[in-house]
Structures are given as C-alpha cells and as structure tokens.
Design a protein around this nucleic acid. Structure first.
Length: 1049
RNA sequence: GCGCGUUUAGCUCAGUUGGCUAGAGUACCACAUUGACAUUGUGGGGGUCACUGGUUCAAGUCCAGUAACGCGCACCA
C-alpha cells in the first residue's frame, strides 16, 4: 500500500525539492553528441539592471516548455542562459546610486573605479536574476551561463569589429547626439524626457542677394543657431518661393551667404512662413537635410560646455542662452527682426542634470549597412542589410507569426547605417587606437600633397613598429580619416597594450622601458638605444609628444555584443565542438519590440561571421498588459512581480497562466488586486493606483493602511507594501490540485495492482473511449507545440484531464474498482493514462508533474500503455508519449458522447425539479436496438452518474409518456416524476422551446428550398441540413406529443 | 502621418480553408456536502460577434469604409 498523499498540493515544497533534485541529477546539462540531434535555444539575455517581471516570466516559460518537450522527444536539448551588460541602463543605475550615496559623479570616481563598482553591482544582480530564472523552473544548462561582457564574448566582439574594420564595413562618421552641456556628456534617448516649456517663437528675415528689397521670412525657436545656418529651405512645389530657389541670402549677423534650397522632406508649406532655416550641426532634421544636400556645408557653433565657439563670431564665448538674447537684440538693431510669439515648446531635457539637451555634432563609429561599392575586402557587393533581408525572404529564417517578418524587412530596407559607439565606460571598449598625424611646420606649398605624405609616413612607421614587436599583418589593420588621423584596429589584447606602451613612451618622449609602464602591466620593450628601432619609429615617437596615441575612449553599443550572442556563447571565433554541434541554433523566442534592434542584427552577424543564420525559427511572444490595456513598464509602475504570484499560487500556476494566453500573439490583459498585508483582503487595482501615484491605501475590510503593490523603488519601513494577486492564476493552481487529487485517488485504490498489457479490443467502451481521447489529445498537443500554439496546449490538457479523465472516467471507475473482476484492468488503465498525462503536463507544469511521477514510481514502478515498462526516475527525462493511431475511434467517441448526452439531460431534469438523491427517478429510454445496446453496456454507470434509480433502454416503450423528457434525435428518455412536476411551468417551458425549434426548422426549410443553395453548396453541407431538418421535425413531433399529454394532465 | 494589431458574455480570451443552435475559463444564480479534490461536484441564466456597406446560396470569419483602443516608426521650424 502506497503512502497516502496529503490532501492538497503544496507548490512551495515541490519547488524546493525538485529544483534541488534536477540540479543534482544534471538533467539540464548538454554536451555535444554526434549520435543525437541537438535542439538549441539561446536565452534572450535579461539586463543585469532589473529584476524579472511578468514579461520575462512569459518569455522564459515558453522557452522552457519547448526545451522540456524536445528533451523528452529525445533531442539533445541545450538552453543556454546568460545576462546582458546593458550599457546605458546599468551604468546610469550605478552612477545614480553612487551619487545618492556619496554625492560623487563618475568623473570624481574615474573610469577604472566606476567600472569596478559596476562589476560589483552586476555580480549581485546577476545572481539574483539567475536565481529568479531558476525559480520559474527554467531548465537551462547553468554550467554554460554566459555574460555579454565576459572574456569569451569580448573575444568575439574584438574579432568581429576587427574583421568589419578590415573589410571596410566600419567607418568613422558624424552624428548628432543628445548633449548634456552641464555634465558634458552625451545622453541616450531613453535618458531624456520631453517637457512642455515656456519658450519663444521668433520670426526673422534674411535679405536675398541680388534682389533689392526682397527678403525671406522664417521662424525659429532657437535664434542663436542662426549663426550656424547653412541654408534656407523651401518646399520644391511652393509657388511663393519657386523663383528664389538657387538664389542666396545673407545672414546679417555675420555677413555669410547661404543658398536657398528646395527639400520636400524638411520644408512644409503649411507651417509658418513655409521657409525653414537649416542648421545641420544643431538639429536632427536639418542634419538629415544636410545629408541629402551636402553642398550646403555644416557649421558647429558650440563648445562642449554650451558656450559659442569661434564660429559664433562676435558672440564667441557667450553661453547659448545669453547668446540667444544677444542674437535677437542684434537682429532687431539691424532691422531684420519681425516679432516674437510666446509659446509652449516641447523641449528635451537630460534625465540626470535636468538641463536642456543640445543636439551636438560628434564623431562616431558606424557599420555600413548599404551595398559596398567594390571597395572593402569582401567579394560580394551585396551589403549587410540586403544579406540580412535575404535570409528571411529566402525562408531560411522563419518568423512565427509570419507578419513580424515585415517589421524586420521594412526596417532593414532603409539600410540606415548603425552607429555602434557609445560615450560610456561600461561596455566593450572599442579596439581602435588613434594616431594623430603631425600637422606642425608644414613648409610645402602643396598642403594636400604634404599631408598625404605625412599620413603615409606615419602609417609606415606604425606598421614597422608593430612588426618590430612581432605582430603579423593578420593581427592589425590601419585606416585613415579626413581629419588626419590614423586608426589602428586589432583584436589582439597584447597589441593594444603595446600601443599603450608606445603611447606612454610618446608622452615621455623617449623610447625605452619605463618603470611605471611595467607597473601598469604593459609589455616590456627594449629601450631606445639598444632596441634597434627603425628610424621611422623614433621619428614617430618624437612627433607625438603633444597628441599621443590613445585608445578610443568609447565603448560599443550593447547590441553589438548581443548580436553575436548565438555564436559568441558557443566559443566563436574558436572552432569549438560546441559551435560545430549546436550552431545554428533551433529557435529564438523573443518579444516584438526588439525584432530590429536584436533579431535582425543577430542574423546579420551570424551571416557575416559564420556565413550561416543564427537560428531557424523566430517565435514572437504576446505581451502581458495591465488590467487597462497598457503595456507593463517600470515608468508606468504597472508591473506585476512574478515572485508575488509564485508565492501566492505556485510556479505551476504561473506557468499555466502564461502558457494559456500565448497564442497567435494576441496580447492579454491581466487585472490584478492588492492583497491587504494585514488581513489578506483583495482590493482590485484601479487606474489611479498606477504610476506610483497612490502612496497609501486603506483596506476596506480591516481599515489598515498599506502601499499598493508594484515596483516601488525602495522599501518603506512605515508602510507595508501589498503583494499583487489575480484570480487568473487560480485556474492553474486549481488545475495542479485537481491532478494531485486524481493521483491521490488512484493511489488509494491501487491494492492488488499488477502491471500487464491491455488489449484494446477486449476493453469495455469507457476504456476504449478514454484511450481514444488520450491518443487524440496527445497528437493534438504535439501538433500545437510544433505550431507554437501554447494556449491550445494548455486548453487541450485542461479539457482532457479535468473534464474527461476526472469528471467522467474516474467517476465511472469508482464502481469498477469495487468489483474484484473488473478491478485489475481499471487499475492498469487508470495508471497508464495518468502516466501519459504526467508526461504531457511536464513541459508546462513540471513541479506538480514531478511530484506525482515520483509518487507513482513508488506505487507502480512498472506501468504504461499498451504494454507496461519500467518507469524513468524523473518525468523530466521520460519519453514524450505517443499512442497508436488505431486507438482513435470516432465510433466509440460518438457512442460515448450519446451516453454523456443522456446523463446530462437527466441531470438537468433532476436539477430543475430539485430531486434529491434519495428520491429515485425511474428512466425509460426509447431508441433503436443498436443504441439500446450501447446504453445497456453503460447502464451500470448511467444510474450513479445521473443520480437515478431504475434504468431501462429499448426500442419498445409501453409506458405512458410523463413529464420530464430528455429529447435527442436518436433517443427519448422518459422519467417518472409523479407528483413532483409543476405542470404549468413545464408547459410554458416546452412551448417556448417549441417556438424556437420551429423557427429553426423554418430556417432550414427555407435554405433547402433555395435552389442556389442546393445547387452550389457542397453536397455534404446540403446533406447535413437535410439530416438536421429531419431531426428537428422528429423532435418537434415528440415535443408536441409531450405537450399534449402534459396539458391533458 | 505611415505601418502592424485589436474590438465576440460583466471580466479575460478561443473561434482553422466562409457551413449544424457562436465556445471556454471566471464572475453571477440555484442545488449538493464525511465520498480523491470546497483549490469540489451538478445544473442554469447571460452575446445585435464595434459600426456601415459590399461579395456569397451562406459572413464572427472574406473585401471596402468608419470609430475607438494598443504597439512600432517617423514628425512636431
């Protein structure tokens, strides 16, 4: 006799127990094994900044469902976990923390110290995030955990950058960045906010050259930028200005002449005067205009501190705000001022310094996305963007749902170059060292010629130096820019250090080993006197006293390293066994908002580095929205913490929920309640509780104050924060408990169980029905998983297990288990089906499945259908079920459904007349002999299931009709309910039903009378309608007869 | 402004290539209570499938338009 299970499933205990067990057994670890097929997923690495939220829970659960399923199917399943360093987000979090605690900025700390602090912070939060991932049951290969900034990834990053640099895909360019003049740093878009600010809208005029008394009028919110104007722009089809296109105007402030150009994108004839000034260096749209019309030039008028530079002329040195007033005043004096309007203007602010952002022109690194013009080392002239698009259009990479391929293709089609440098300290430092070419003492008349010569000389000297230090041509590449700089790129860390050493020597103006250099960990170089350096090198050192060689201070865009994730984590550029075996990976599961930022770039990098796609399939998940239809986000304060949910309902419930909403990427709302921390009352969340606006709520039940649940930044010692709850998770919790108790019931009735084969043909109808349903369900679940229809998976499991197995089969088995002759077979079927159920459930609800699997192992280690076998020690490694297709029998299912119909009809009557269990209803069924045989075969169950007494079925019915009739096309059931019926009510009900039925029949008749319908509808549909009409007519006749008898009394 | 999506029961959602009386869960109502399970069982009520038009023998489903909402991308001198 097996030990009895507790009455209810305890998720907490199961979670703890099985997490430890799985870890100990190492089920999730994968090694390359040529004998087996791999199935690989790399995790979308969560940022180390935050805690996991509902979105992570969804995304990772779905990945886990697939990985667990494939593992059971016999694939060598690898799920590679890891985290992302998330440059901007992480750095700013830590910077903020440091400032809050120590009132120090990053400049106070210095680069090295700040990076050290971020690493410490990362270690702490990475551990927390990975811990949370484990808690939701993720079956990742934890031994292979990677981080986008670890050595393995760094190597891949340097190598990729180097190859692209050499091939000419990476170039130096200009870009407008958000400049924080107060902190003197560039700021990412997400670190800015826009606020309506009181500002001005000034109108000025510029005189048109060669046309006396002709002016062109325009308006601006930033008059000081007039000093940097490079053109005036009108719409090409604007009749007012057509004659002026091609003329020039003079900026009265400095006398500079600028052209009037036509640009349909920038100028809008409907807005303002229809003319717009173009200041490419200080406005993003004007900058884009300049790219279309490079001949107008670009003039930067700002210093990094926000004051005007030498291009400001008379206004040089003034702060931009003061310059604005001065410029307006000057224009007024000169008579070109036309007026000012006060306006609310949306102005971008820096999140950190709360000062206005200046668009500021700066040097950045770019990856060229368009087609290469025969330059570059690569044969193919097809650009990176095109190549990346082709991978999807050719079908090598497939999106599910398919429509998302469109966002991917549309974005890539723009072929916009990718700016990969970021002015941050946290990230992969760009492996480029810049050497300024000496520009002093130019004597030649031909400046260009002279500089070309110097560039070449410097380049030769550098090459000679690096070769002298025993670096090969394959280890570095040198490019030059128009600004007389050379860029040395190398993936080899030693080479970088050697360049640092060279730089140090330049600064010290001597070529010899210095003590401090070895202290810095730089390589040892022989000194100047004995080193046998070629003359160029000595010269190089001598000219770089002022502008020494330095590594680029910037780091790479986080997405650059994320883009390598599928292959860098497998060891690329080394040809590791892992890379050969697992690449390309099978599947990527991610959310739609990073299709462009991440998915496209992974495909790009995979194709570029390995000439192969990174994954075959991309599944885009739906999103969990808040109860009001908004996406959850930190700033909105409407997030739900999955740990609250796990705590209240268990991990299986959480996983069941996210699975049940994941279908054709239809987003789903999740209304939540606050759980009163003192009495546990649920208080529904209202919109005004969001955005951290409501700081305090009072429980309507116990009147205690608390803080509504949500992602509050800090703990509040005064006020307890409510946990969040939602009845949506009760479904999964109850489902787990249902399976628990079904198993509990089976284990309690296992006395005398002997494993043995079952022969379908000899099994009673109900067993044949159950096995047919099991085989059908298994097939459908497998198909649904293959199509990523997770919601269908959970629905199929729920319906089969709860409605069919528990509500019908287990109920029917109760009688059989009492009978010694039918008992053994019922046990085999119960156990065999339960075994299959637990396997089917494992991917979605692994904890409860494992608990029950172990309980079953104890009681019945040998089990299974159709032939029993020794069970595996864990359901995690059990084979995915597959049952003979012959088990699926429509005839059996139809027969069983008829019995269910009868039982349901009888139950309905019993309920309607409130017949209690003690009052026995006698039932007579009139039907064909065949159906009578069916009913009689199941007669033993019909009584108990429907709560009736005597049951007879047969074609001949002698009994008079009585009220309480179950009408079905194939049978009629009459109940003896003498004295219980309210005749008047029953008459009324029947009359209403008759009206409806007749209406329906009229509809069908009309349809059948329609020649077009009979002529053009498929034969089976017409046949169906005829059959339906027949059934309806028969039912109407019976109902009429019944009604007459009732009325007769 | 462009693109994508959504609109079906009080709530959250299913609904295959058009075809039987539009489904589930939950909430609600009634009944049941030592039974594997109250995290339960049985039954019931509840829908103008956003709106307008079109195609068709037949439209929740296809087409066009309208409205509301959401998302992404642009733009806002």
């Amino acid at each position: 006799m097996a030990t009895e299970l507790p009455k209810a499933y305890d998720p907490r205990e199961a979670q703890q127990k099985w997490l430890a067990f799985w870890k100990e057994r190492g089920y999730f670890h994968s090694e390359p094994d040529p004998e087996r097929k791999p199935f690989t997923i790399v995790i979308p690495p969560p940022n180390v900044t935050g805690a996991l939220h509902m979105g992570h829970a969804l995304n990772n659960t779905l990945q886990d469902v697939l990985i667990r399923w494939k593992r059971m199917q016999g694939f060598n399943a690898l799920w590679m976990p890891g985290t992302d360093h998330a440059g901007i987000a992480t750095q700013s979090v830590v910077e903020r923390l440091v400032f809050a605690q120590e009132k120090k900025t990053r400049h106070d700390l210095g680069r090295e110290e700040l990076v050290k602090r971020i690493w410490a912070w990362k270690d702490k939060y990475e551990a927390r995030i990975l811990g949370q991932l484990r808690e939701i049951g993720s079956s990742c290969d934890w031994q292979r955990t990677r981080f986008t900034l670890d050595d393995m990834c760094a190597k891949a990053v340097r190598e990729t950058f180097f190859r692209m640099f050499k091939d000419g895909y990476i170039y130096r360019g200009k870009r407008l960045v958000n400049w924080d003049a107060h902190l003197q740093t560039s700021v990412a878009d997400d670190e800015t906010y826009t606020e309506e600010t009181k500002g001005g809208f000034w109108t000025f005029k510029y005189p048109v050259n060669d046309l006396p008394d002709t002016f062109i009028r325009f308006s601006t919110t930033r008059p000081e930028t007039m000093l940097g104007d490079c053109a005036i722009c009108v719409h090409p089809s604007d009749e007012r200005y057509k004659p002026l296109i091609g003329k020039t105007v003079t900026i009265p402030l400095n006398g500079r002449s600028i052209p009037i150009i036509a640009d349909g994108i920038l100028a809008d004839p409907e807005l303002g005067t229809g003319c717009v000034k173009v200041t490419p260096a200080h406005d993003a749209n004007d900058y884009a205009c300049w790219q279309r019309h490079p001949e107008i030039g670009i003039i930067n008028i700002l210093n990094p501190d926000g004051t005007l530079n030498e291009n400001g002329g008379d206004f040089k040195g003034l702060d931009r705000v003061k310059a604005r007033d001065a410029v307006v005043k000057k224009m007024e004096e000169l008579g070109f001022y036309e007026g000012k309007e006060d306006r609310q203007i949306p102005l971008k602010y820096s999140d950190r310094s709360k000062t206005p952002i200046e668009p500021y022109l700066s040097d950045q690194w770019f990856v060229k996305m368009g087609d290469l013009q025969a330059s570059g080392g690569r044969e193919s002239a097809v650009g990176l963007a095109q190549m990346t698009m082709d991978a999807v259009t050719s079908g090598r990479v497939k999106f599910t749902p398919e429509r998302y391929a469109r966002s991917y293709l549309d974005w890539l089609a723009e072929k916009r170059d990718w700016c990969i440098s970021r002015q941050l300290w946290w990230g992969h430092r760009i492996p480029v060292w810049t050497v300024h070419v000496d520009r002093e003492n130019v004597t030649s008349d031909d400046l260009e010629q002279e500089w070309k010569l110097r560039l070449k000389r410097t380049r030769d000297a550098l090459t000679a130096f690096l070769k002298h230090c025993k670096f090969s041509d394959e280890e570095f590449a040198i490019s030059e820019t128009a600004e007389f700089k050379l860029h040395v790129c190398s993936p080899v860390p030693e080479l970088g250090k050697t360049l640092d050493q060279l730089s140090l020597m330049c600064r010290n103006s001597r070529l010899q080993t210095s003590e401090d250099s070895t202290a810095d960990g730089l390589p040892h170089l022989p000194d100047r006197a004995t080193g046998n350096y070629p003359a160029e090198i000595l010269q190089l050192v001598d000219c770089h006293k002022e502008s020494p060689i330095a590594q680029d201070p910037d780091v790479l865009d986080t997405w650059f390293s994320s883009a390598l994730w599928p292959h860098s984590t497998l060891g690329w550029p080394e040809q590791t066994p892992e890379l050969k075996y697992y690449y390309p990976t099978s599947l990527l599961v991610t959310s739609r908002d990073i299709i462009t930022l991440w998915v496209a770039r992974m495909v790009l990098m995979g194709l570029y580095n390995l000439d192969g796609i990174p994954f075959h399939h991309v599944y885009i998940t739906p999103k969990v929205l808040d109860g009001f239809g908004d996406t959850m986000s930190k700033s909105k304060g409407n997030g739900v913490d999955p740990l609250d949910i796990i705590d209240l309902y268990g991990t299986d419930a959480l996983r069941y929920y996210v699975t049940s909403i994941a279908g054709e990427t239809q987003d789903s709302r999740l209304p939540v309640s606050n759980v009163c921390p003192s009495c546990g009352t649920l208080i529904p969340q209202k919109q005004e509780h969001l955005g951290l606006r409501t700081k305090k709520l009072a429980c309507p039940q116990c009147k205690t104050a608390f803080r509504p649940g949500g992602p509050w930044p800090t703990d509040d010692p005064e006020l307890a924060t409510a946990k969040q709850a939602s009845d949506r998770f009760e479904v999964g919790r109850n489902f787990a408990n249902k399976m628990w108790n079904a198993t509990r019931f089976i284990l309690m009735n296992l006395d005398g169980y002997t494993p043995g084969p079952v022969n379908l043909a000899t099994l009673p109808t109900e067993d044949q029905w159950l096995l047919s349903r099991l085989a059908t369900t298994t097939k459908a679940v497998t198909a649904a998983l293959e199509a990523y229809k997770f919601n269908e998976v959970s629905r199929l499991l729920y319906d089969f297990i709860w409605s069919e197995f528990c509500d019908w089969y287990i109920e029917m088995s109760k009688g059989r288990l009492k009978d010694a002759s039918s008992r053994p077979m019922a046990q085999r079927v119960l156990i065999g089906v339960l075994d299959g159920i637990l396997r089917l459930v494992q991917p979605v609800m692994p904890f409860v499945a494992e608990s029950l699997w172990h309980a079953l192992n104890e009681a019945a280690p040998k089990r299974g259908l159709p032939t029993p076998a020794d069970s595996t020690e864990s359901v995690v490694i059990a084979p995915w079920p597959e049952f003979p297709t012959e088990w699926i029998s429509e005839a059996v299912e139809v027969r069983f459904a008829r019995m269910q119909d009868l039982v349901r009809g009888l139950r309905e009557l019993r309920n309607r007349y409130q017949v209690d269990e003690k009052t026995k209803m006698d039932v007579t069924v009139k039907c064909s002999a065949a159906i009578a045989a069916e009913f009689n075969a199941l007669a033993a169950f019909i009584g108990p299931l429907a709560g009736i007494g005597n049951f007879t079925a047969g074609p001949a019915v002698a009994k008079p009709r009585q009220a309480g009739t179950v009408l079905r096309p194939e049978f009629e059931a009459y109940l003896s309910l003498a004295g219980l019926i309210d005749v008047a009510a029953e008459v009324k009900r029947l009359e209403k039903q008759l009206v409806d039925k007749r209406k329906q029949l009229d509809g069908i008749k009309a349809k059948l009378a329609n020649e077009k319908f009979v002529g053009s509808a498929p034969a089976e549909i017409v046949e169906q309608q005829r059959a339906l009409a027949g059934e309806s007519e028969q039912q109407i006749r019976s109902m009429e007869e019944n009604l007459r008898e009732l009325q007769a009394g």
